[in-house]
Amino acid sequence: MDEQALREALHVRAAQQAFDPDAVGRAVERGRARRRRRRTTLLAAVPVVALAVAGSAAAGLAWLPGDPPAARSAGPDAVARPVQLLTQATSPGLVFHARLDGTLTVTDDGCVAITPIGSAVVPVAWPPEWTVGRDDDGRAVVYDPQGRPFAHEDGPAGVGGGLVNPAAGGSAIDPADPCALGSSRVFQVADALFW
């Protein structure tokens, strides 16, 4: 098969494809739903951040980089505790091939991170479209861009990506975000790249 034959065959096959105009309306509905869900998560995060800041100030705690806060397991009181994701400002490129396996963990600040077996909690920067909520049992659930549950709090979680310094130039991660956990090494998830 030469390149010209391939080109012609592709055009023939392409011409047989039919677009469903209703897909536009469905996209608008799904987009609105995702926006609402994101807004809800964001609004829920505001009081917890304010409480965390006030609590830290009141206790006079100094939080040193490299010494992230202890994680807490889900329980009955977890339902009222909002959760939040540190998301990347832009979609990551296909440049990272590391893997982070462990347990999905929610820190005292309500930040969703991953704790590898036998290691300290690792702050995670999720791709832009990923969201978080709580299930009926009060456990945090991370959703992928398609709205599918990816992992549950205290359950197994494995992501692909790489460790980056959020303070480095060109980083898609806000180093001041509380969910960066004050660490100079954040695991940037590449899986949902352009996502």
């Binding site: 592709l10 096959r13 392409a14 011409a15 047989q16 494809q17 039919a18 677009f19 469903d20 105009p21 897909a23 536009v24 996209a27």
Partner: peptide, 15 residues
């Protein structure tokens, strides 16, 4: 825009 560009996107997706 989506109604205009959709058929082209669907052709690429079909391939």
């Amino acid at each position: 825009w989506a109604h205009r560009a959709g058929p082209g996107l669907r052709r690429v997706a079909g391939l």
